[in-house]
């Protein structure tokens, strides 16, 4: 069982379900308040969705200056896994842990709907449980989700296999190359716009998002030589 720190900003609003999803996958998930500088020795850090500090200026623009982000950056620079979901992705970009930025959606309206994404990279801690090429139905809910990078960076991301998820069918928000999620060069930092934590049980319409959390737990189990099969049999069925 790994320790998962879920960072809570005053305007985070997806922290409860993110913690629940991590716990459902077998992790020991706990909250870290934005004013804490101590992450309490996590194996993984998750920045959940929401509106961090209200985001009236630009999503994530203030959050990156919060005390907790120094510790998150150190964790990331040391190779520790960090996942940013929606607002968390925005914060990771603002903090320079991921390239590019998230701009207002192409139609300038908030967009909440089910989308389909193609899993392109399975070498990250958060997608290693998916089969390459799998297509997932997951919800998006954002006003600023149009991923924008310059042409050179986009080419680097593509060539380096750092596009983690890509919208398939419709590109809902006008993102560069229909990118829905990217990773850092070391693969340990991942940002995604869709919300896997909202799609992890049949009663919620599907469980395509569950493996994001199972992936990180299984990877940890492998690395720490506990009973991998228990996790694998119970959840992964890859």
């Amino acid at each position: 069982m790994q320790r998962v720190a879920v960072i809570v900003f005053p305007g985070s609003n997806c922290d409860a379900e993110t913690i629940a999803a991590a716990r459902q996958a077998g992790s020991d998930a706990y909250r870290v308040w934005h004013r804490d500088a101590d992450l309490k020795r996590p194996d993984v850090v998750i920045l959940p969705g929401g509106f961090s500090y209200g985001d009236y200026l630009r999503a994530g623009a203030i959050a990156r200056f919060s005390p907790v982000m120094t510790a998150v950056t150190e964790h990331a620079r040391a190779g520790g896994p960090v996942l940013g979901i929606c607002n968390g992705f925005q914060i990771l970009c603002e903090a320079g842990l991921l390239p590019g930025g998230l701009m207002r959606n192409a139609r300038l309206r908030f967009l909440s709907r089910l989308v389909r994404v193609h899993v392109e990279a399975t070498d990250t801690p958060f997608t290693c449980g998916y089969e390459p090429g799998a297509v997932l139905a997951v919800p998006i809910a954002h006003g600023e989700g149009r991923y924008v990078v310059d042409a050179r960076t986009a080419a680097e991301l593509e060539a380096g296999g750092r596009v983690v998820w890509r919208y398939t069918g419709e590109n809902p928000n006008g993102s560069t190359n229909a990118i829905a999620g990217v990773s850092s060069p070391g693969r340990n930092v991942v940002g995604i716009m869709p919300h896997p934590e909202r799609r992890n049980a049949p009663v919620l319409g599907g469980e395509d998002g569950a493996r994001v959390f199972l992936s990180m737990e299984a990877r940890y189990a492998t690395q720490h030589a506990v009973d991998v099969r228990a996790v694998g049999d119970r959840h992964l069925r890859v």
């Binding site: 997806c14 967009l111 909440s112």
Partner: peptide, 14 residues
């Protein structure tokens, strides 16, 4: 209309 409303936050929407 309802595409502009977040209808799945809290992960409880059946």
């Amino acid at each position: 209309v309802y595409e502009q409303y977040d209808s799945t936050v809290r992960a409880s929407t059946v």
